[in-house]
Every structure is written in C-alpha cells, then in structure tokens.
Amino acid sequence: MTRLAKLLRTMPPTAVFGLIVIVIYLVVALSAPLFAPHGQAEIVGAQFEPWGEVYALGTDALGRDMLSRLIWGARNTVGVALATTAIAFSLGAVAGLLAAALGGFVDLVLSRAVDVMMAVPPLILTLLALSALGPGVLNLILVVALLDSTRVFRLARATAMNVMVMDYVEAAQLRGEGTRWIILREVLPNISAPLIAEFGLRFCFVFLTISALSFLGLGLPPPMADWGAMVRDNAALITFGDITPLLPAACIAVLTISVNFVIDWMLHRASGLKE
C-alpha cells in the first residue's frame, strides 16, 4: 500500500489526470443505462433541439437525446475498440512469440507476411477489405484487429528475440523444456513491460482508426450510438455556429490524450528516467 501511495505521489500531473479520466470513462461505459436519461435509439423530441432544461445537450438530426447518445457511445465505441485491441494484441503477441521461439521457416513466413501488410497504409487496406467483405461490426473488428496486430507482432518478436539468446533460455532448452514452457515461463515475464505499454498505444491507435472509419460511414450499424458517426450525422450544425457535433469528437480526443499521458509516463519510468 505504501508503495502504491509513493507511486501515486511521484506521478506527474499529466499521468494523474490521464488515470482519473480513464477511470471515469470506464465507469460511464459500464453503467451507461444508469446515467443515460434516454435510450440510444429512442426518438424523444424534434430535430436539432437547442441545449436546455429538457435536453441537456439538445437533440440530433433524428430527434434523439444527444447526452444519452454520448453516454451510450462510451459503451459502444470504447467497447468495440477494446475488443479489437484485445484481439489484435493476442494475435500479434502469440504470432510474434512463436516466430521468435520457433525461428526458421515459421519466422520467415510470418515476418514476410507482416512486411507486406505494413507496406501499405493501414487505412487504405482497411477500406479495401471492408469494400470486399461488406460493412458490419464483426468485419470491422476483425479487419482492424488483423492489420493492427502487425505492429504488435514486430514488437513482440523483436523483444522476445533479445530474450531468446539469454543463457537462462538456453539452460531451459538444455533441460528439455518445451516451446510452450519457454515462451510462458522464460520469455513472457521478461517482455511484459514493453508489451503493456504497447497495449495502451495500440488501443489509442485502434480507437482513432475505428472512430475515423465510423466517421466515414463504415462503423457500427446506424441505431447504435457511435461517437465517430455522431460527428458525421450532425456535422451540418457546425456551419450554423453550433459546436454540438464537436462533443463526440472531443470525447474521443480526451480519452486518447489521457491514455497517451499515462503511457508516456510508463515508458519514461521503464526507460529508467534516462532523459
């Protein structure tokens, strides 16, 4: 407990801010039905009602309550991004560790495949894949996860390679331990710090990608509240000097900035405060 208190005390203000914001988002996302005054697809009034007593942040192009949709959006958008990151991360980490541990042919094939995927901007490949597969949440999650796993693969492979040449790994191999044991007991514990930081970075990246795609009209299907699509649907209001459409975009930005602040601090700590 004292170590935790000390850790919190030595945190820079940006990291504290980041952590607090992340916790708030998680609470709102988990208990969206408690906070939201209305349902996400519920039409409660006229189009584009102004901010006021009845509708705190007004209504959208279809007359749905903006505040409620923002709250539901936290659950939907963050949920989809988290699921995608988790898939991308497991896929990339497992493939990267296997490539490092097995080497040879497996490593060659996986690495070349990743090289090819990384030779093209991810957004372009995502658009290509979505036009072939058709839109839909599942396709969106799988495509973004697969393309993003390439970055995790690179990092996992590179860090695991460094550990694989250590004496204790050789000792384990000579003892006759299997690949699985070596990966889980020797390699993974030693590369967990960079991998955890990478998870945060990947989350930011995936979150922004998915928001961008839903802004482009390729995100979650319509009745669901989704921050990127909410910006697109209400963008016309901006030309009338109303900033409501910027709110969902700001929700996206505040979360990614917070996560980045926390990661920045973690990386700084992991690098032994070199700078």
């Binding site: 961008a212 901006i238 910027l246 975009a249 700001a250 930005a253 990614t256």
Partner: peptide, 17 residues
Amino acid sequence: LSAISLPEFLIAYILMF
C-alpha cells in the same frame, strides 16, 4: 502528444468552426 491523440476530423471541424 495531444495533437497526435486528436482525431483528424476534430482538428478539421475546430478549424472550420
């Protein structure tokens, strides 16, 4: 760090506004 974390469309709409 903040600018990197902003979605492109937010920057675009803020400038437009």
